[in-house]
Design a protein around this nucleic acid. Structure first.
Ligand code: ZN
Ligand code: ZN
Ligand code: ZN
Ligand code: ZN
Lengths: 138, 138
DNA sequence: TTAAATTCCTCTAGAGACTAGAGCATTTCG
DNA sequence: CGAAATGCTCTAGTCTCTAGAGGAATTTAA
Protein backbone atom coordinates (compact mmCIF):
# COMPACT_ATOMS: atom_id res chain seq x y z
CA UNK A 1 0.00 0.00 0.00
CA UNK A 2 1.33 3.39 -1.04
CA UNK A 3 0.70 6.73 0.59
CA UNK A 4 -0.18 9.67 -1.59
CA UNK A 5 3.40 10.90 -1.22
CA UNK A 6 4.77 7.58 -2.46
CA UNK A 7 2.49 7.75 -5.47
CA UNK A 8 3.61 11.30 -6.09
CA UNK A 9 7.30 10.40 -6.02
CA UNK A 10 6.85 7.44 -8.31
CA UNK A 11 4.87 9.26 -10.97
CA UNK A 12 6.16 12.80 -10.73
CA UNK A 13 2.63 14.09 -10.14
CA UNK A 14 2.38 16.49 -7.22
CA UNK A 15 0.31 15.53 -4.21
CA UNK A 16 -2.34 18.26 -4.58
CA UNK A 17 -2.64 17.35 -8.25
CA UNK A 18 -3.38 13.74 -7.37
CA UNK A 19 -6.15 14.90 -5.07
CA UNK A 20 -7.38 17.16 -7.85
CA UNK A 21 -7.56 14.25 -10.29
CA UNK A 22 -9.55 12.28 -7.76
CA UNK A 23 -11.96 15.18 -7.42
CA UNK A 24 -12.29 15.39 -11.21
CA UNK A 25 -13.16 11.72 -11.37
CA UNK A 26 -10.02 10.53 -13.14
CA UNK A 27 -8.84 8.48 -10.21
CA UNK A 28 -11.27 6.43 -8.16
CA UNK A 29 -11.56 7.57 -4.56
CA UNK A 30 -8.77 5.77 -2.76
CA UNK A 31 -9.12 3.48 0.21
CA UNK A 32 -8.32 5.13 3.51
CA UNK A 33 -6.15 4.22 6.47
CA UNK A 34 -7.62 4.15 9.96
CA UNK A 35 -6.57 7.75 10.28
CA UNK A 36 -8.31 8.74 7.02
CA UNK A 37 -5.23 8.94 4.83
CA UNK A 38 -5.35 7.74 1.24
CA UNK A 39 -3.81 4.34 0.47
CA UNK A 40 -3.06 3.18 -3.06
CA UNK A 41 -2.08 0.01 -4.83
CA UNK A 42 -0.40 -0.95 -8.07
CA UNK A 43 -3.45 -0.37 -10.21
CA UNK A 44 -3.68 3.22 -9.08
CA UNK A 45 -0.05 3.73 -9.97
CA UNK A 46 -0.70 2.57 -13.49
CA UNK A 47 -3.76 4.64 -13.92
CA UNK A 48 -2.00 7.76 -12.67
CA UNK A 49 0.87 7.12 -15.07
CA UNK A 50 -1.69 6.88 -17.87
CA UNK A 51 -3.24 10.20 -16.84
CA UNK A 52 0.13 11.85 -16.55
CA UNK A 53 1.22 10.67 -19.96
CA UNK A 54 -2.02 11.82 -21.54
CA UNK A 55 -1.66 15.24 -19.90
CA UNK A 56 1.93 15.46 -21.12
CA UNK A 57 0.63 14.87 -24.61
CA UNK A 58 -1.74 17.78 -24.11
CA UNK A 59 -5.06 15.97 -23.75
CA UNK A 60 -7.52 17.71 -21.47
CA UNK A 61 -9.27 16.27 -18.47
CA UNK A 62 -12.53 15.46 -20.19
CA UNK A 63 -10.76 13.67 -23.03
CA UNK A 64 -8.82 11.65 -20.49
CA UNK A 65 -12.01 10.83 -18.64
CA UNK A 66 -13.45 9.47 -21.89
CA UNK A 67 -10.33 7.48 -22.67
CA UNK A 68 -10.35 5.90 -19.23
CA UNK A 69 -13.96 4.92 -19.54
CA UNK A 70 -13.25 3.46 -22.97
CA UNK A 71 -10.35 1.45 -21.66
CA UNK A 72 -12.70 -0.15 -19.17
CA UNK A 73 -14.52 -1.85 -22.05
CA UNK A 74 -11.69 -3.80 -23.68
CA UNK A 75 -13.92 -5.55 -26.21
CA UNK A 76 -15.57 -2.48 -27.65
CA UNK A 77 -14.20 -1.10 -30.92
CA UNK A 78 -11.55 1.58 -30.58
CA UNK A 79 -13.03 4.10 -33.01
CA UNK A 80 -13.79 6.62 -30.26
CA UNK A 81 -10.29 6.49 -28.86
CA UNK A 82 -8.95 7.01 -32.33
CA UNK A 83 -11.20 10.00 -32.86
CA UNK A 84 -10.14 11.62 -29.59
CA UNK A 85 -6.49 11.30 -30.53
CA UNK A 86 -7.05 12.50 -34.09
CA UNK A 87 -9.07 15.49 -32.97
CA UNK A 88 -6.34 16.42 -30.57
CA UNK A 89 -3.69 16.08 -33.24
CA UNK A 90 -5.73 18.38 -35.44
CA UNK A 91 -6.04 20.95 -32.65
CA UNK A 92 -2.29 20.83 -32.05
CA UNK A 93 -1.62 21.39 -35.73
CA UNK A 94 -3.96 24.37 -35.81
CA UNK A 95 -2.27 25.85 -32.78
CA UNK A 96 1.11 25.47 -34.46
CA UNK A 97 -0.15 27.26 -37.56
CA UNK A 98 -1.41 30.18 -35.54
CA UNK A 99 1.81 30.44 -33.60
CA UNK A 100 3.85 30.37 -36.78
CA UNK A 101 1.97 33.37 -38.08
CA UNK A 102 2.63 35.19 -34.85
CA UNK A 103 6.27 34.19 -35.02
CA UNK A 104 6.69 35.63 -38.50
CA UNK A 105 5.03 38.89 -37.59
CA UNK A 106 6.99 39.25 -34.38
CA UNK A 107 10.27 38.40 -36.06
CA UNK A 108 9.62 41.06 -38.68
CA UNK A 109 8.76 43.64 -36.04
CA UNK A 110 11.77 42.86 -33.88
CA UNK A 111 14.13 42.91 -36.86
CA UNK A 112 13.18 46.52 -37.59
CA UNK A 113 14.33 47.69 -34.19
CA UNK A 114 17.91 47.74 -32.96
CA UNK A 115 16.89 48.86 -29.46
CA UNK A 116 18.91 52.00 -29.79
CA UNK A 117 16.64 54.95 -30.51
CA UNK A 118 13.78 56.92 -28.95
CA UNK A 119 10.41 55.39 -28.17
CA UNK A 120 8.67 57.82 -30.48
CA UNK A 121 10.54 56.36 -33.45
CA UNK A 122 10.47 52.77 -32.27
CA UNK A 123 9.18 50.31 -34.81
CA UNK A 124 7.97 47.97 -32.09
CA UNK A 125 5.65 50.59 -30.66
CA UNK A 126 4.60 51.88 -34.06
CA UNK A 127 3.68 48.49 -35.40
CA UNK A 128 1.62 47.73 -32.31
CA UNK A 129 -0.28 50.96 -32.93
CA UNK A 130 -0.94 50.11 -36.55
CA UNK A 131 -1.84 46.67 -37.79
CA UNK A 132 -1.59 48.13 -41.31
CA UNK A 133 2.16 47.67 -40.99
CA UNK A 134 1.69 43.92 -40.58
CA UNK A 135 2.10 41.47 -43.42
CA UNK A 136 -0.72 39.11 -42.50
CA UNK A 137 -3.70 38.60 -40.26
CA UNK A 138 -3.69 37.17 -36.77
CA UNK B 1 -17.91 61.29 -27.46
CA UNK B 2 -18.33 57.55 -27.83
CA UNK B 3 -20.28 55.17 -25.67
CA UNK B 4 -18.68 51.92 -24.62
CA UNK B 5 -20.77 50.16 -27.29
CA UNK B 6 -19.43 52.49 -29.99
CA UNK B 7 -15.90 51.79 -28.87
CA UNK B 8 -16.65 48.09 -28.91
CA UNK B 9 -18.01 48.14 -32.46
CA UNK B 10 -15.10 50.18 -33.77
CA UNK B 11 -12.36 48.04 -32.26
CA UNK B 12 -13.94 44.61 -32.19
CA UNK B 13 -13.34 44.37 -28.44
CA UNK B 14 -16.36 43.21 -26.47
CA UNK B 15 -17.94 45.55 -23.97
CA UNK B 16 -17.16 43.50 -20.86
CA UNK B 17 -13.60 43.14 -22.08
CA UNK B 18 -13.22 46.91 -22.31
CA UNK B 19 -14.39 47.22 -18.72
CA UNK B 20 -11.97 44.46 -17.78
CA UNK B 21 -9.07 46.35 -19.39
CA UNK B 22 -10.03 49.44 -17.44
CA UNK B 23 -10.01 47.41 -14.25
CA UNK B 24 -6.58 46.00 -15.12
CA UNK B 25 -5.22 49.49 -15.61
CA UNK B 26 -4.67 49.29 -19.37
CA UNK B 27 -7.28 51.93 -20.14
CA UNK B 28 -7.62 55.03 -18.00
CA UNK B 29 -10.94 55.29 -16.18
CA UNK B 30 -13.25 56.95 -18.68
CA UNK B 31 -15.19 60.12 -18.13
CA UNK B 32 -18.80 59.59 -17.24
CA UNK B 33 -22.11 60.96 -18.51
CA UNK B 34 -24.58 62.52 -16.08
CA UNK B 35 -26.15 59.10 -15.78
CA UNK B 36 -22.78 57.47 -14.93
CA UNK B 37 -22.15 55.87 -18.30
CA UNK B 38 -18.63 55.78 -19.76
CA UNK B 39 -17.78 58.30 -22.47
CA UNK B 40 -14.69 57.95 -24.66
CA UNK B 41 -12.81 60.08 -27.14
CA UNK B 42 -10.42 59.50 -30.01
CA UNK B 43 -7.39 58.90 -27.81
CA UNK B 44 -9.14 56.03 -26.05
CA UNK B 45 -9.97 54.50 -29.40
CA UNK B 46 -6.32 54.49 -30.38
CA UNK B 47 -5.18 53.08 -27.11
CA UNK B 48 -7.72 50.30 -27.23
CA UNK B 49 -6.65 49.45 -30.78
CA UNK B 50 -3.07 49.26 -29.51
CA UNK B 51 -4.10 46.90 -26.71
CA UNK B 52 -6.14 44.77 -29.06
CA UNK B 53 -3.31 44.45 -31.53
CA UNK B 54 -0.84 43.57 -28.81
CA UNK B 55 -3.22 40.90 -27.48
CA UNK B 56 -3.69 39.51 -30.99
CA UNK B 57 0.06 39.16 -31.17
CA UNK B 58 -0.07 37.18 -27.94
CA UNK B 59 1.40 39.68 -25.48
CA UNK B 60 0.01 39.37 -21.98
CA UNK B 61 -1.60 42.07 -19.90
CA UNK B 62 1.46 42.93 -17.85
CA UNK B 63 3.65 43.24 -20.95
CA UNK B 64 1.07 45.54 -22.50
CA UNK B 65 0.95 47.60 -19.34
CA UNK B 66 4.72 48.06 -19.57
CA UNK B 67 4.58 48.95 -23.25
CA UNK B 68 1.91 51.57 -22.62
CA UNK B 69 3.90 53.13 -19.84
CA UNK B 70 6.98 53.17 -22.08
CA UNK B 71 5.06 54.82 -24.89
CA UNK B 72 4.20 57.64 -22.52
CA UNK B 73 7.88 58.61 -22.41
CA UNK B 74 8.61 59.25 -26.11
CA UNK B 75 12.15 60.47 -25.54
CA UNK B 76 13.41 57.53 -23.56
CA UNK B 77 15.39 54.87 -25.39
CA UNK B 78 13.39 51.95 -26.74
CA UNK B 79 15.58 49.14 -25.42
CA UNK B 80 12.90 47.94 -22.99
CA UNK B 81 10.24 47.78 -25.68
CA UNK B 82 12.63 45.85 -27.83
CA UNK B 83 13.35 43.43 -25.03
CA UNK B 84 9.66 42.80 -24.36
CA UNK B 85 9.05 42.00 -28.00
CA UNK B 86 12.13 39.79 -28.28
CA UNK B 87 11.31 37.89 -25.14
CA UNK B 88 7.86 37.25 -26.44
CA UNK B 89 9.18 36.09 -29.77
CA UNK B 90 11.45 33.69 -27.96
CA UNK B 91 8.54 32.36 -25.89
CA UNK B 92 6.47 31.85 -29.04
CA UNK B 93 9.31 29.93 -30.65
CA UNK B 94 9.68 27.70 -27.63
CA UNK B 95 5.98 27.00 -27.61
CA UNK B 96 6.14 26.05 -31.28
CA UNK B 97 8.99 23.65 -30.60
CA UNK B 98 7.08 21.93 -27.83
CA UNK B 99 3.98 21.62 -29.94
CA UNK B 100 5.95 20.17 -32.81
CA UNK B 101 7.23 17.42 -30.57
CA UNK B 102 3.70 16.69 -29.47
CA UNK B 103 2.55 16.71 -33.06
CA UNK B 104 5.14 14.14 -34.10
CA UNK B 105 4.32 11.85 -31.23
CA UNK B 106 0.58 12.13 -31.76
CA UNK B 107 0.89 11.61 -35.50
CA UNK B 108 2.90 8.47 -34.88
CA UNK B 109 0.37 7.17 -32.39
CA UNK B 110 -2.62 7.90 -34.59
CA UNK B 111 -0.96 6.34 -37.63
CA UNK B 112 -0.71 3.01 -35.82
CA UNK B 113 -4.44 2.80 -35.30
CA UNK B 114 -7.03 2.36 -38.03
CA UNK B 115 -9.92 2.73 -35.58
CA UNK B 116 -11.14 -0.73 -36.41
CA UNK B 117 -10.23 -3.15 -33.66
CA UNK B 118 -10.82 -3.77 -29.98
CA UNK B 119 -9.80 -1.37 -27.27
CA UNK B 120 -7.55 -3.94 -25.65
CA UNK B 121 -5.38 -4.03 -28.78
CA UNK B 122 -5.64 -0.33 -29.54
CA UNK B 123 -2.32 1.38 -30.06
CA UNK B 124 -3.72 4.71 -28.89
CA UNK B 125 -4.60 3.29 -25.50
CA UNK B 126 -1.44 1.23 -25.26
CA UNK B 127 0.86 4.10 -26.02
CA UNK B 128 -0.85 6.29 -23.45
CA UNK B 129 -0.21 3.57 -20.90
CA UNK B 130 3.44 3.29 -21.79
CA UNK B 131 5.67 6.24 -22.57
CA UNK B 132 8.35 3.73 -23.48
CA UNK B 133 6.61 3.37 -26.83
CA UNK B 134 7.25 7.03 -27.55
CA UNK B 135 10.12 8.25 -29.69
CA UNK B 136 10.98 11.36 -27.69
CA UNK B 137 10.35 13.26 -24.51
CA UNK B 138 7.55 15.72 -23.87
C1' DT C 1 7.93 5.28 24.99
C1' DT C 2 7.70 9.65 23.90
C1' DA C 3 8.97 13.78 21.47
C1' DA C 4 10.02 15.76 17.15
C1' DA C 5 9.81 15.74 12.27
C1' DT C 6 7.34 14.62 8.39
C1' DT C 7 3.42 13.75 5.95
C1' DC C 8 -1.34 13.98 5.51
C1' DC C 9 -6.24 15.90 5.85
C1' DT C 10 -9.94 19.54 4.23
C1' DC C 11 -11.08 23.88 2.68
C1' DT C 12 -10.42 28.26 0.47
C1' DA C 13 -8.37 31.32 -2.68
C1' DG C 14 -5.50 32.63 -6.55
C1' DA C 15 -3.50 32.44 -11.26
C1' DG C 16 -4.89 34.60 -16.56
C1' DA C 17 -7.97 36.63 -19.60
C1' DC C 18 -11.90 36.91 -20.07
C1' DT C 19 -17.37 35.60 -20.32
C1' DA C 20 -22.19 35.11 -18.61
C1' DG C 21 -25.87 36.49 -16.01
C1' DA C 22 -28.76 38.94 -12.44
C1' DG C 23 -31.03 42.98 -11.26
C1' DC C 24 -31.48 47.59 -12.05
C1' DA C 25 -30.62 52.44 -14.41
C1' DT C 26 -30.05 55.37 -18.50
C1' DT C 27 -30.37 56.60 -23.22
C1' DT C 28 -32.31 56.57 -27.74
C1' DC C 29 -35.87 56.33 -31.14
C1' DG C 30 -40.47 56.21 -33.16
C1' DC D 1 -44.20 59.22 -23.81
C1' DG D 2 -43.20 54.55 -23.76
C1' DA D 3 -40.62 50.68 -25.45
C1' DA D 4 -36.23 48.86 -26.88
C1' DA D 5 -31.55 49.08 -26.63
C1' DT D 6 -27.78 49.95 -24.11
C1' DG D 7 -25.45 50.79 -19.91
C1' DC D 8 -24.22 50.07 -14.82
C1' DT D 9 -22.19 46.99 -10.80
C1' DC D 10 -21.39 42.75 -8.79
C1' DT D 11 -20.79 37.84 -8.59
C1' DA D 12 -19.48 33.59 -10.37
C1' DG D 13 -17.76 30.49 -13.84
C1' DT D 14 -14.12 28.79 -17.31
C1' DC D 15 -9.41 25.35 -16.91
C1' DT D 16 -5.69 23.03 -14.54
C1' DC D 17 -3.64 23.22 -11.22
C1' DT D 18 -0.89 25.61 -6.98
C1' DA D 19 -0.34 27.74 -2.37
C1' DG D 20 -1.53 28.34 2.19
C1' DA D 21 -4.10 27.88 6.71
C1' DG D 22 -5.05 25.15 10.54
C1' DG D 23 -5.14 20.85 12.34
C1' DA D 24 -4.53 15.45 12.52
C1' DA D 25 -1.90 11.18 11.55
C1' DT D 26 2.29 8.76 10.90
C1' DT D 27 7.14 7.84 10.98
C1' DT D 28 11.70 8.31 12.93
C1' DA D 29 15.09 8.93 16.49
C1' DA D 30 16.45 9.56 21.12
ZN1 ZN E 1 12.89 50.43 -31.12
ZN1 ZN F 1 -0.96 43.05 -37.01
ZN1 ZN G 1 -7.12 1.65 -32.09
ZN1 ZN H 1 5.39 9.63 -24.30
Amino acid sequence: MLSIGDLSRRTGVKVPTIRYYEQMGLLAAAERSEGNQRRYERGDLERLAFIRHARDLGLDISAIRELISLSEHPNQPCADADRIASDHLKAVREKIEKLKKLEQELARIVSHCDGDHAIEDCYVIRSLSDHGLCDGEH
